[in-house]
């Protein structure tokens, strides 16, 4: 008996590995195909400057999507990331411009604002048992309202802090290697992705996120304090929104209090295209990064080709549906 078990288990495990690899490969090859298509269609698409533009355009949505990935892996959802990002940007503006605090303090204030909002969402979900959709919907509105109230419905500018814009648009690498002036935004995106991949793959927090998403009850019964870990995961997601808030404030050299609506859906789309399952239990950071890149590459390429924007929405929508459908087929085949 034992031998047959082992015999059946071995190929199953191998096909599972192959299937995961196939999913990652699928998203990656989709990105490559889109890239090749646009490169052939327009010589302006493949210029180094434009590729840098695409990467910079991915930065804010990509970082938001990193945070959402953790939440979706637990089979939860976070609708508040866009407006929490805006609230964090506003708080950074209050700290740096209104209070005249140093930029690093402003960055910490932004990160803490995001983390606090995420923590509150997490407590509502884990302790008060409010469904994630509702709790984060509430947080989305609360953050939006507070952004407007705190800013007095006015943008906060960073004109008195000339270095602030350089957080995103300066180039530390360009200063070291002349002629390779890739904006910091790109490295912040990749750096944040590495941190996220480390947390998901190598820490207890990441392991428990996957476990909670696979089977919350079983995880609880095996002695894990699910409520605490869930709260921590939402707080982590909030921290990424806070980082995105600092990033968007730097890029626009201002905290724009009316921004943020719709950003949560774009982030969720990136996560889903990247192969993270909305039913929880699995997902990768690399997939999310590729998903975010697919969205911004499409946006940029279709603009370069002057395709009417209405169609761009249709195309992105079709890709989201296709990505999820392929995921379902893959599961059924397992």
């Amino acid at each position: 008996m034992a031998t047959t078990d082992a015999a059946t288990a071995a190929p199953k495990k191998r096909s599972l590995l192959r299937a995961d690899a196939a999913q990652k490969l699928l998203a990656f090859s989709a990105l490559i195909l889109i890239f090749i298509f646009f490169s052939l269609a327009s010589p302006f698409f493949r210029t180094p400057d434009n590729i840098s533009s695409i990467l910079v355009a991915t930065a804010v949505n990509g970082v938001l999507a990193l945070g959402v990935t953790f939440v979706i892996i637990t089979a939860g959802i976070d609708l508040s990331v866009g407006t929490v990002m805006t609230l964090s940007a506003v708080m950074t503006g209050v700290a740096v411009t209104n209070q005249g605090l140093p930029v690093p303090v402003g960055i910490v204030v932004g990160l803490l604002t995001g983390t606090t909002a995420g923590l509150l969402s997490g407590l509502m979900i884990a302790r008060m048992k409010i469904p994630p959709f509702i709790a984060t919907l509430g947080m989305m509105m609360i953050a939006r309202g507070l952004s407007l109230v705190i800013s007095g419905v006015k943008p906060i500018y960073f004109n008195d802090t000339p270095g602030f814009r350089d957080i995103m648009m300066g180039s530390v690498v360009g200063a070291v290697i002349p002629g390779f002036s890739v904006p910091n935004a790109v490295f912040i995106l990749f750096g944040a992705s590495l941190v996220a991949a480390f947390i998901l793959g190598k820490t207890v927090l990441g392991r428990y996120a996957v476990a909670i998403g696979s089977n919350e009850e079983a995880t609880r019964l095996s002695g894990v304090n699910v409520a605490n870990w869930k709260t921590a995961i939402y707080a982590l997601g909030g921290a990424f929104s806070g980082l995105a808030g600092v990033m968007i404030a730097s890029r626009l050299n201002s905290a724009q209090p009316a921004l943020g609506i719709g950003y949560e859906l774009e982030a969720i789309a990136a996560v889903v295209i990247g192969g993270t399952s909305l039913s929880g239990g699995e997902g990768t950071i690399l997939g999310t990064l590729i998903g975010a890149l697919i969205i911004s590459t499409l946006t940029n390429g279709l603009r370069i080709l002057s395709v009417p924007q209405e169609w761009q929405m249709v195309i992105t929508g079709v890709i989201v549906v296709l990505a999820v459908y392929l995921d379902i087929i893959r599961r059924r085949g397992r």
Binding site: F44, A57, S254, N300, R303, S306
Partner: peptide, 26 residues
């Protein structure tokens, strides 16, 4: 007129849109 685009008044989206248009039309 090479492009007419719509950015929803969103500063970030408008920035990325305008960048693509300028890249496509040196």
């Amino acid at each position: 007129i090479v492009n007419v685009d719509y950015g929803a008044g969103d500063q970030l989206k408008s920035t990325d849109l305008a960048k693509a248009v300028i890249q496509a039309n040196p």
